[in-house]
Design a protein around this nucleic acid. Structure first.
Length: 877
RNA sequence: GCCGCUGUGGCGGAAUUGGCAGACGCAAGGGACUUAAAAUCCCUCGGGGGGCAACUCCCGUACCGGUUCAAUUCCGGUCAGCGGCACCA
């Protein structure tokens, strides 16, 4: 005894990791053998192991959460390799920006992902569950300007804190060996590689254009990064600047990005709608209007070619290139020029606001309607956009509300070409444009047919007469990727006076971000001011040249990181094609709705480009998407500025990671907003205590018995156990309803308390044991440390993380008795308890014989009796 | 304006295929244990009425209407909130 207690002392203190518990540790073995002068007997070994099966009286998470985290890490429990013997499952949460401190609003998404990953692992999947850092970005650079810390130092310190003090303490089952950090050159060099490949294919190009400019971030923004005219990051009012910028030709994939939305059947409809709206496909025709008295043609785009006969004027954008030629030699030329100058001085955002006053001026020129030869005046309109369509529009006041108002304002004619069958339209008395369907009128050979039919016929006519063609217009613009900031991937381009624009050759990649730069926050970006970075030699002629000093939008980094996780150490390519084809697609992607357009659109685009580069054979990266709700507290989104943040470390210290996880899962279904409630956290903490106390109370007794099997079929707790296994499994499988899964576990625990309250006989102990086993397994994805500790105390030595998920016994969930609800005229009047399998006829008879039913039917014969199999009887009078 | 989503107790939320509305939890109230408190355990808990009581009746899922033996669930309309798109030709 002295020896063995000495051994257990060694196990608990010296080898706290309990690594090789199937055998005593070497030191114990040695000591034991030394004292007894023989190898330990089986009996003694069992005693050693039994030490492990002791259970603390009270649930004290502090005693084991860290230990399990360390064990998982040491044993590489979550490290994965390609394994053809198992089905693979790729579970991914959108990776975080390392902003410093996260709060429980951020950790919710990781817990959701972790529950899924742990569940799938127990279901026998080979689960890839990686984590990394979207590490480039403005806050790091702003910190550098404000506090004089280098962005690299700031970022790396934040990553260390978030990883070690926050995420790891949540017990998240990541394969940390696959950690990806986008600001490291082994990652961003591939951004540059993609850039060069895209440049070679004409998918990356530079052009001078009006771009969105955030004065506060002092950089350009993509269209997707402007929300209601404000910067997506800092909410400053976005202005416009004419700059020479790099673009990715996402519009080349517009058609596919739109049409393959239909294949994303496991994405929320909301996200798909937003993407479809954003891409914005308009189908119509382009029509050439000859300018009277000149050889020039003015091309317009319209989706309403059925109204072409009703055109009474045309409008062009102030920036339209034909403007000068239209107004030369006209008497109002100067007046038009001053109007145009005034319009162009106005800010784009203001000009394109709906409430902005629509103004125009007649140019003095006329165009000829190619369908009816009609002569229509050409106006300049401040509301016509050069970026959409052709920069020129036809105006049909009778059938377009905006044109109608413009015509009324400037006394332009109105011609009805689609007649309303219910109430004849008369231009003089019209109060608004008629935009419904109707019958063609005033439209030459097309009169009398419906306007919907006329659309096709007129489009045919235009194409046959070679006066235009069918055309498609997109709302989607090319993705502006140049950023005038330091902390991002340098754009790998060299400008040579002799050779022009030259991409950096592959062998010279990466173009490293220089570390010795100054952060003043004034003037140009640190790169543009760094001589040693800027000055270089031309890779073609060897002459002096200069580097592009803009960096790439950080959304480039996140557009392909999910592929990098498949082979994060790959040094010769962005990723290993074979590994990627094993792991991809991402089976489950989880992230916030704020990326419905931004990141999710860019990542889809990149995947298609990568496919066309021949590196990957899929069309879409994310099979199934879950957009989790935000975490709110005191009625507001959790945020530093609102002062309502709850850091996970605080909850972990007070209640433990398992409570934090369980509450996040229980308080609301994942896609809905979650109200953080301190009392709710207490409640889930109490629940874990309740389980612990129950198991502690019966620990010794149940350790002596084997779990019950099918022979216990008739036992109510056995039945509840299997109902719960079924319910929890189905709730997770069906739309990840973790809240109801946890509720089911609570119900089961309540029933276990009832079951054990009156003492347990020999038949009941095994049933309780099997209930405890099942409960421990079922709660493992939600509260993994808690489950591991209990699982070990129940005599299991291989950890619960890879233990098989329990199966329910279909026979056990069938009730022996059924409760039939009896209604009279649709109102519940009685309930009957009948043996399972009672025929409909017998159920009906029993219902009609019921005293309560007789009272309500007053012994009158029922008009009709409806019996729902084993559930309900409705007696209709 | 167009499109989408949501609306259930004091609160978070259940109700899976049209079949017992309010599971589970929080808060609240009452009780047990305790010198006391904490912890724990038990009971009550949508609204209104009747009964000494076991109990029982009526109303109730934003609002109005419809389909149905039966509607939180399906259909039509209204209102409110949230989100997306919007001078897009």
């Amino acid at each position: 005894m002295i020896i063995t207690s000495f051994c257990s002392y060694i196990i608990f203190t010296h080898d706290n990791s309990r690594k090789n518990l199937a055998k005593p540790c070497h030191l114990c073995y040695f000591l034991f053998s030394f004292h007894s002068r023989r190898a330990p007997s089986e009996k003694a070994l069992f005693w050693l192991r039994a030490q492990e099966d002791l259970l603390e009286e009270r649930y004290d998470f502090k005693k084991f959460e860290e230990r399990w985290q360390r064990l998982w890490e040491e044993q590489k429990t979550f490290k994965v390799f390609e394994d053809a013997s198992k089905p693979k499952y790729y579970c991914l949460e959108m990776f975080p920006y390392p902003s410093g401190r996260i709060h429980v609003g951020h950790t919710r998404v990781y817990v959701i992902g972790d529950v899924i990953a742990r569940y799938k692992r127990m279901r026998g999947f080979n689960v890839l569950h990686p984590m990394g850092w979207d590490a480039f970005g403005l806050p790091a650079e702003n910190a550098a300007i404000k506090h004089g810390i280098h962005p690299s130092k700031w970022t790396i310190e934040n990553i260390a804190y978030m990883r070690d003090s926050q995420l790891k303490r949540m017990g998240l089952s990541y394969d940390w060996d696959r950690e990806v950090t986008t600001c490291f050159e082994d990652y961003y060099r591939w951004n540059q590689w993609f850039f060069v490949k895209m440049y070679e294919r004409g998918l990356a190009y530079k052009k001078l254009s009006y771009v969105n400019w955030c004065p506060s971030c002092s950089t350009v923004l993509a269209n997707e990064q402007v929300e209601n005219g404000l910067c997506w990051r800092c909410s400053s009012v976005v202005t416009h600047k004419e700059l020479d910028q790099w673009f990715f030709k996402i519009t080349a994939y517009a058609e596919e990005l739109l049409s393959s939305c239909d294949s994303l059947t496991e994405w929320p409809e909301r996200v798909l709608t937003m993407q479809r709206n954003w891409i914005g496909k308009s189908i119509g025709v382009e029509v050439d209007f000859r300018v009277e008295g000149s050889g020039e043609k003015l091309t317009i785009f319209t989706t309403r070619q059925d109204t072409l006969f009703g055109v009474t004027f045309m409008s062009i954008a102030p920036e339209h290139p034909m403007l000068e030629s239209l107004i030369t030699d006209t008497k109002q030329a100067d007046e038009v020029r001053s109007f145009v100058q005034r319009a162009m001085r106005e800010d784009k955002a203001a000009r394109t606001d709906e409430k902005h006053e629509k103004e125009g001026i007649f140019t003095g020129a006329y165009a000829i309607n190619p369908l009816n030869g009609g002569k229509v005046p050409i106006w300049v309109g401040n509301f016509v956009l050069m970026e959409y369509g052709t920069g020129a529009i036809m105006s049909v006041p009778a059938h377009d509300q905006r044109d109608f108002e413009f015509a009324k304002k400037y006394a332009l004619p109105i011609v009805v070409v689609i007649q309303n069958l219910e109430k004849t339209l008369v231009p003089e008395t019209m109060k608004q444009a008629y935009v419904e369907d109707g019958i063609m009128t005033n439209s030459g050979q097309f009169n009398g047919i419906s306007n919907t039919a006329a659309k096709e016929k007129i489009a045919d006519h235009i194409e046959q007469g070679k006066i235009g063609k069918r055309a498609v217009n997109w709302r989607l613009r090319d993705w502006g990727v140049s950023r005038q900031r330091y902390w991002g991937t340098p754009i790998p381009i060299i400008y040579c006076e002799k050779c022009g624009t030259i991409p950096v050759p592959e062998k010279d990649l990466p173009v490293r971000l220089p570390m010795d730069v100054e952060f003043t926050g004034k003037g140009l970006s640190p790169l543009a001011e760094s001589k040693s970075f800027k000055e270089t030699t031309c890779p073609q002629c060897g002459g002096s040249a200069r580097r592009e000093t803009d960096t790439m939008d950080t959304f480039v980094d996140s557009s392909w990181y999910f592929l990098r996780y498949c082979s994060p150490k790959e040094g010769t390519a962005p990723f290993d094609t074979k590994e990627a084809s094993y792991w991809m697609n991402v089976d489950q992607y989880i992230g916030g709705i704020e990326h419905a357009v931004l990141h999710l659109l860019y990542a889809r685009f990149f995947t298609k480009v990568i496919r066309d580069l021949g590196l990957y054979d899929g069309d879409e990266p994310f099979q199934r998407l879950l957009t989790q709700g935000m975490v709110v507290k005191d009625g507001a989104k959790m945020s530093k500025s609102k002062g309502n943040v709850v850091p996970p470390d605080m909850i972990i210290s007070k209640y433990g990671a398992d409570t934090a996880r369980l509450f996040s899962m229980f308080a609301a279904p994942p896609e809905r907003d979650l109200e953080w409630s301190d009392q709710g956290v207490e409640g889930t903490y109490r629940f874990l205590h309740r389980i612990w106390t129950l198991i502690y109370k019966h620990h010794q007794a149940i350790m002596k018995v084997k779990p019950a099997g099918r022979e216990a079929k008739g036992d109510p707790l056995y039945r509840k156990t299997h109902i719960t296994i079924k319910k929890v499994t189905e709730d997770i499988e069906r739309e990840f309803h973790f809240n109801t899964a946890v509720a089911a576990l609570m119900e089961m625990v309540n029933e276990m308390y009832d079951y054990a309250s009156g003492g347990l006989n020999d038949g009941q102990l095994p049933v309780l044991r099997s209930a405890i086993d099942a409960l421990t397994l079922l709660i493992a994805p939600f509260a993994p440390h808690f489950a591991e500790e209990l699982w070990e105390s129940l005599g299991n030595r291989n950890g619960i993380a890879n233990a098989p998920w329990p199966q329910y016994d279909p026979e056990a969930v069938i009730a022996l008795e059924i409760t039939v609800v009896v209604q009279v005229n649709g109102k519940v009047r009685s309930k009957l308890t009948l043996p399972a399998g009672t025929s409909d006829k017998d159920i009906e008879a029993a219902a009609l014989a019921d005293a309560k039913v007789k009272e309500f039917t007053d012994n009158k014969p029922p008009k009709k009796v409806i019996v729902v199999q084993g559930k309900l009887v409705n007696v209709v009078l």
